[in-house]
Design a binder for these strands. Structure first.
Lengths: 304, 304
DNA sequence: CTCAATTATTAATATCATGCATAGTTGTAT
DNA sequence: ATACAACTATGCATGATATTAATAATTGAG
């Protein structure tokens, strides 16, 4: 195969034109070359193939048996290459049976996913989605070896291996959640009150030690009391419902819990940071039409 | 298909190396290029394919799905091209069933062909040979449209369309043939005796008006008396056997007749020209392995 | 023999892949 | 953290070669 290094593969297109036309000038037009260039190319072909390929006869040029023998093969090869190089056809969601795996936060799973999935059932009935919680290792290895297609919901303040591609997804205001029976708290919390109270704190990932709220407090040389740490929003909400502690969490999620549990939304202290959630994927699959579709679908869903 | 004009097909080889190796430097070595050239080529590929193709990961470069999808197709195309471009395998005489058509003179048919064919039966049992007499039209059209593969035995003094390829074949001395009962002629003919006698003259081709002997005489302002003209050696020989006329013909042929018919060889006048016979074929098939084999076989047979 | 059509050739030009040197990137070991 | 090793990417000069325009050579036809 290495012998091909000697040969200018571009001559194949010229060969096809020449032997098809049996006419140097016409072949030249066909591939947008000058007659001269075509003649030169023919000579190069002749030399390489060690065969005249085209011979003058009474009725113009005529192809040699060798040339005729090669022509269909060359055509097949060119067609093959043409098809291979042609852009891959777009992902057809309506007919796909692909299985996607999404590593996500509770926020995505609880707030977004149910509605999103219902929507997917309509447009992509064959597509299946595995949802799993984000773990430490998700980001890199799993994305790379394709055991996870997408990481959804991680906070922007987090730093991930730089080769991963991040896309902004949703920005959510943080609010506080208190038990309905918790009468020590009003409609709104001052900063001082926020610092005085016990907190149920959660993290997106196991082993994660920072979160936007604590970072924000730290910037002001402040801190709050972590009574409970969990990586599960639902657990946090139930603790809040049953104790005097409060939790700080994205608005939509708080709203969801306020409908399900005996908890209520309390306005947080002023300037409470906004949480910017992102979607991560591996650059290897940046162009994967299916993944592209999924990413767009997730991002557009929230717009609705 | 014309879209391929935009694409440098030589990049296919580079693509194959790159995606096979997932390593720019190694791929470069594989195709005897510098690492730099390989990197540039990768960029060209990336641009054309609109896909990164190779992405850095923890374990070196890794191919994108698109690249992996293309790889086997590209390999197939390259293999196809490789096989197509590879020299056509030589003609296998021992196994071929090809039919050759030879247009020839009586000389070839009578003197050479029987032995040649016997020889062919040994080495190429499947090969079949049609023999037909040379006609006017043989040379050009028939050779071109392949209804005749070879014209064997024509005299070199003849002029044929220049595009036909001529090869020297056999040189034969001319001798005279006289009837055994013809007592008016001795062992040898002087020039004068040659001019005084009646001649049976033959021509290689119908419509042919020249022959080496008459040309030779004409150069000396001489001429002989044509009692009979024929294109058939055998007919001529039989006339000689039964009349007082003589014929002038190639030595081997004369020898053959002297064994079959009541005729004897008589030495011709001094300086009688030599007849140079040739083999003609069309340049279209100059490289045809089968024809090449046949030509070589015919030429070598005479050497034996 | 000349004309028309076509291919081949020649020499100047333009293009582009290549190589060199070097900078940038990533992962690992200290 | 820092330095190092292993790679890949980049900018630029260069050289190989495809291309062009002009022209010659070839062929068939009238």
């Amino acid at each position: 195969m290495q012998a091909l290094r000697q040969f200018d593969l571009n001559l194949l297109i010229i060969f096809e034109a020449l032997i098809s036309e049996c006419h140097v000038s016409r072949a030249a037009e066909k591939v947008f070359l000058s007659q001269s260039a075509m003649s030169h190319a023919l000579n190069r072909l002749r030399e390489y193939c060690d065969d005249p390929l085209l011979v003058r006869t009474a009725n113009g040029l005529q192809a040699t048996p060798r040339a005729l023998e090669m022509l269909p093969e060359v055509r097949r090869a060119l067609q093959l290459i043409d098809r291979t190089l042609a852009k891959p056809k777009a992902f057809d969601a309506s007919r796909s049976n692909r299985v996607f795996t999404i590593a996500c936060t509770d926020y995505f799973e609880a707030v977004i996913f149910p509605g999103l999935f219902a929507c997917l059932q309509q447009t992509a009935p064959g597509v299946r989605i595995n949802v799993e919680m984000i773990t430490d290792a998700s980001s890199r290895e799993k994305l790379e070896n394709r055991s996870v297609d997408l990481v959804v919901g991680v906070d922007a303040s987090h730093r991930y291996p730089k080769h991963l591609v991040t896309e902004d997804w949703i920005s959510e205001h943080l609010v506080c959640l208190a038990g309905k029976q918790n009468t020590r708290i009003g409609e709104q919390l001052s900063l001082q009150a926020y610092l005085d109270i016990s907190h149920v704190v959660f993290f997106d990932q196991v082993g994660d030690t920072t979160n936007p709220v604590d970072s924000w407090l730290q910037n002001q040389q402040l801190s709050r009391h972590h009574s409970v740490r969990t990586t599960n929003y639902m657990a946090a909400a139930r603790i809040v419902a049953q104790t005097g502690a409060i939790a700080t969490l994205p608005y939509q999620m708080a709203r969801l819990f306020s409908e399900l549990l005996p908890v209520r939304i309390v306005a947080p202290p002023a300037n409470m940071p906004v949480i910017d959630m992102q979607i991560l994927h591996h650059p290897l699959f940046d162009n994967d039409p299916g993944l592209l579709w999924l990413r767009e679908t997730i991002k557009q869903y929230e717009v609705i």
